[in-house]
Design a protein around this nucleic acid. Structure first.
Length: 445
RNA sequence: GCUGUGAUGGUGUAGCGGUUAGCACGGUAGGUUGUGGUCCUGCCAGCCCGGGUUCAAUUCCCGGUCACGGCCCCA
């Protein structure tokens, strides 16, 4: 042996998917894809690697330490993609400038981040996402959020919580009380949002006094942060904004979105308005939302998105803001598996059970005598495997059963003489003798 | 980035400073010349990697790798 076992292992944070696992993943992808199509989203694909500049432009030079970046043989600075929104924006600016707007785009693929791998966090992970480009406002946002909820409902996810906020509201408040949006590497407003996202009141208080802002405002923000409920919480928020003499415009937008959502989306197990959801990213400009699942502990966020401005980076500021979300494919699957286990559900992903399949078993005959039947069954769309082991019937049935076949077509010497075959249904054990031709066989599969 | 726990055939496990490293599942070949989800038999296949202590290490110690947790972070 040239390679000793275990000498070469798969890299840390990556996974192999054997057929049984891949079957489930494919079922899940197909489910998401058909849901996206039902909302008018069209699938696209971008390269696995991109110019390093694409991501530093979006997220600053700090991201490089989390990237699988490399030089190619012509010294181009490239990187495996760490996310899919920026590549989609890039693609729009290169390929779809003159396409009629709005665009509804969906994508699925692996992304790469160099960070500690653990359950629910991999160095190679898969994301399904959508972007709605060239339309903005509450109705467009409702379209996007309703698709997200529709997907989670369709795959049977339980006990998830949707949290919706609006960074415009926070931003209005923070600038309204005198914090600056200018400053490198992080503006006081951005810092404050981070503190709010983490509910770090001491940090926020310190930041305020450092910027000569009345720390009494912290109290009002605490009130805002503690609002945590359905659409009715907006009334309390409205009062706080009035006291602070802040515009209600963003709040009205959010209210409008929530109203549309009630009509457009299935009702999720829990939907909470939380005005301090900041998503930690400074390109979000409007509505932001995220979905969490208890089962996954620290890595419980399974979906996140919102309205953002990125196309100005490509000279397409007239298309900003856009709205989209990314769904953590691996995390949702982990949650579904944990929940299926908990509630004793057989199917983890709806529709994952393989379609019927047939083993054709020539027994002590010249196989050539049945090959044309195999061909015709396949042409008719049946999933047919030809036995290649040549064992006795008992062993073959055992093997077929272990490999998930739903039926076996047995053709022995006597069958050939009588131009017939035996079709055994492995699920219920029934057996029938039928004429040895594809149309007769199909009736029994 | 910090920190804790762990690693025995493909899977799940037992065990020990000196063992032919045990068991179950699995895979494979038979036991039956046409009927499985029973049984029996044979075979396949393992102590994560590197160093140290020791007469002797799979076992004890150190480092690495990988996995699983808890913080930090998460474009």
């Amino acid at each position: 042996m040239l390679f000793v076992a275990n000498m070469v292992q798969r890299p840390r944070g990556t996974r192999d998917f054997i057929p049984s696992v891949m079957n489930r993943r494919l079922a899940f992808e197909n489910l998401l894809e058909s849901k996206a199509i039902s909302h008018g989203f069209k699938r696209i694909q971008t390269p696995i690697f991109e110019s390093l500049d694409l991501f530093t432009a979006k997220s600053g030079p700090g991201v490089i330490k989390q990237l699988y970046a490399f030089q190619d043989k012509s010294d181009r600075a490239l990187t495996l993609r760490p996310e899919l929104t920026a590549p989609v924006m890039r693609m729009i600016s290169e390929e779809m400038r003159s396409s009629p707007k709005p665009l509804r785009l969906s994508y699925f693929g692996q992304c790469f981040r160099y960070e500690e791998s653990k359950k629910g966090r991999y160095r190679e992970f898969f994301q399904y996402g959508v972007e709605l480009i060239g339309a903005s406002g509450p109705l467009a946002e409702a379209e996007v959020v309703s698709l997200a909820i529709g997907m989670l409902e369709e795959c049977g996810l339980l006990d998830y919580e949707v949290r919706i906020g609006h960074v415009g509201i926070l931003r209005d408040i923070l600038t309204g009380i005198g914090l600056s949006e200018q400053g490198e590497p992080e503006s006081p407003v951005a810092k404050a949002m981070r503190y709010l996202d983490k509910t770090d009141w001491d940090g926020l208080s310190e930041l305020f006094s450092g910027n000569n802002i009345d720390t009494n405002f912290v109290e009002e923000l605490q009130k805002l942060s503690s609002l945590n409920g359905g659409i009715e919480t907006l009334e309390s928020a409205r009062e706080i904004l009035s006291r602070l003499e802040i515009s209600h415009e963003s709040l009205d937008e959010l209210a409008s979105l929530l109203l549309s959502l009630q009509h457009l989306a299935p009702t999720p197990p829990s939907l909470k308005v939380n005005l301090c959801v900041a998503r930690g990213l400074d390109y979000y400009t409007g509505m932001v939302f995220e979905v969490n699942v208890e089962e996954l502990g620290g890595e419980g966020q399974v979906l996140g998105g919102g309205s953002y401005k990125l196309l100005h980076l490509f000279g397409l500021e007239d298309l900003d803001p856009c709205c989209g979300f990314g769904l953590g494919f691996d995390r949702v699957l982990l949650a579904l598996e944990a929940q299926a286990d908990r509630v004793g559900r057989q199917e983890v992903v709806p529709g994952e059970t393989p379609s019927p399949s047939t083993l054709v078993l020539p027994f002590k005959i010249e196989s050539n005598a049945v090959l044309s039947v195999v061909k015709e069954l396949r042409l008719a769309g049946k999933s047919v495997e030809l036995d290649l082991r040549g064992k006795n019937i008992g062993k073959s049935l055992d093997w077929a059963s272990k490999n998930g076949f739903t039926s076996v077509v047995i053709i022995g010497p006597q069958d050939l003489d009588n131009n017939q075959c035996s079709i055994k249904n492995l699920v219920n054990g029934e057996q029938n003798t039928v004429a040895l031709n594809s149309s007769s066989i199909i009736d029994f599969l």
